[in-house]
Design a protein around this nucleic acid. Structure first.
Length: 376
RNA sequence: GCGGUUAUGGUGAAGUGGUUAACACAACCGGCUGUGAACCGGUCACUCGCGAGUUCAAGUCUCGUUAACCGCC
């Protein structure tokens, strides 16, 4: 990886926490960290156009190697000119490797040292993902940041299994790194290790030795308690190089996001805001709003008067309620615009707070306001 | 006027005389964390048109009655 193409420029570290503010330079532009990345599995953030995503202030968006391999196939994405050209998004992009699908589709696959066997449900073919083949697919897709092929270890899990799996994930990281050829893509290593301090530490140290341009912390937000998630970060992050970006995978509720930033995380992603939006759960400055509720039928006020998004500037809760009840696509879109913007605005506030050495206060204030038991 | 058919929640309806009246939609309330997710879960008929009867036991059988629909005068 050419250092001129991709690097993290740390501008400021919060005096009282490990939170850091910086600029991540990528082949498709510079973005500020810490940041939140919306998920666009199939080369689309469901219901949203690239213009809408940009207007929300989103830095990077994700796509998924496993899903794009199945449909339409990486060769078609490559023929289109790469994922940016394919979906007409010229900002930075990241592809997840399919490691999470090894976890979420676990009933239909078999893990071996070589890789993961699975069945292509669209044509019935038996296929195998290996650390090398996944990198090859990610190169064809062409995102700016790509992930190593890993196994996302379930929670809870035995120490023996976590150890075996983590060692294998490390070998896979090495194999992926050796297979990676494109100079304009940053390949991240992924720290696994379950909830075990020694395994997390060992995995982080071994990955650090391999000198990746960035590091992910994986195996998080899969049902483990919050304190365990934070420990998994702490166990790993002290061994990760300061000057490289750290990506906390799959984390999307406010307490986890801000808790991650507090510990030195630079980027995280989650389907939560977009999925909640499509299912009618909206994140607002006065708590969660289930827009399908009958109480909004005649509520002609904006969803969140404190929000500057397109939805809140133009539409009422009564209208959003109506669209949801009628299962109208436009409702899902307006809801998604709002939830992502809401989250990104809080992240923007976090960046400002870090610059002014008041991240702790900001976090406490935000969580006191939104992050209660019915929070998000 | 005569003969026949039907009658079960807001709706569409299941329901050999035997616990708690199936299921679906609607309604109401939740959930969703590197998206197999326009998804998933919960609540919603102390009662089967009405009235008698038979029976240990009736939404189910019998009689009467009312209503709707279909025939025939």
């Amino acid at each position: 990886m050419d250092k001129k193409n991709f690097y993290l420029e740390i501008k400021h570290v919060d005096k009282k926490t490990k939170a850091r503010y910086g600029i991540l330079h990528t082949p498709h532009g510079d973005v500020e960290v810490p940041m939140f990345m919306p998920v666009g599995t199939l080369a689309t953030v469901k219901t949203l156009s690239p213009e809408e995503i940009k207007e929300m202030g989103s830095g990077v968006i994700l796509a998924n190697t496993y899903h794009l391999h199945l449909r339409p196939g990486e060769d078609i994405v490559k023929e289109a000119g790469g994922v940016h050209e394919f979906m007409k998004y010229d900002g930075p992009m990241l592809t997840d490797s399919g490691g999470f699908q090894v976890f979420s589709l676990q009933s239909q696959r078999k893990i071996t040292e070589q890789g993961v066997e699975f069945r292509n449900d669209y044509n019935g073919d038996k296929e195998m993902f290996t650390p090398e083949s996944v990198i090859k697919i990610e190169e064809a897709i062409g995102a700016d940041i790509i992930m190593s092929f890993d196994e996302c270890i379930p929670y809870p899990v035995s120490y023996e299994y976590a150890k075996k799996s983590t060692e294998r994930t490390l070998r896979w990281a090495k194999r992926g790194q050796e297979a990676h050829t494109r100079e304009d893509q940053a390949l991240f290593g992924i720290v696994q290790g379950g909830e075990f301090e020694d395994l997390r530490g060992y995995c982080a140290q071994e990955l650090a030795k391999m000198d990746f341009p960035g590091y992910s912390i994986g195996g998080t937000s899969i049902g483990e308690p919050k304190d365990i998630c934070f420990k998994m970060i702490d166990y790993a992050i002290k061994y990760l190089p300061e000057d490289k970006p750290r990506y906390l995978m799959g984390v999307g509720s406010l307490d986890y996001i801000l808790g991650g930033y507090e510990r030195g995380i630079d980027m995280c992603d989650c389907v939560l805001p977009t999925r909640l939006a499509r299912h009618g759960a909206l994140m607002t400055s006065h708590g969660r709003v289930n827009i399908k509720g009958a109480e909004y039928k005649c509520d002609f006020t904006p969803l969140d008067p404190e929000c500057d998004c397109y939805t809140c500037r133009n539409y009422t809760k009564a209208y959003l309620h109506h669209l949801f009840v009628c299962n109208e696509e436009f409702g899902k879109r307006l809801n998604s615009i709002h939830n992502i913007r809401f989250l990104i605005k809080i992240v923007e506030g976090a960046r400002e707070a870090i610059k002014e050495d008041r991240f702790q206060e900001y976090k406490d204030e935000v969580l006191a306001k939104y992050g209660d038991e019915r929070g998000f």
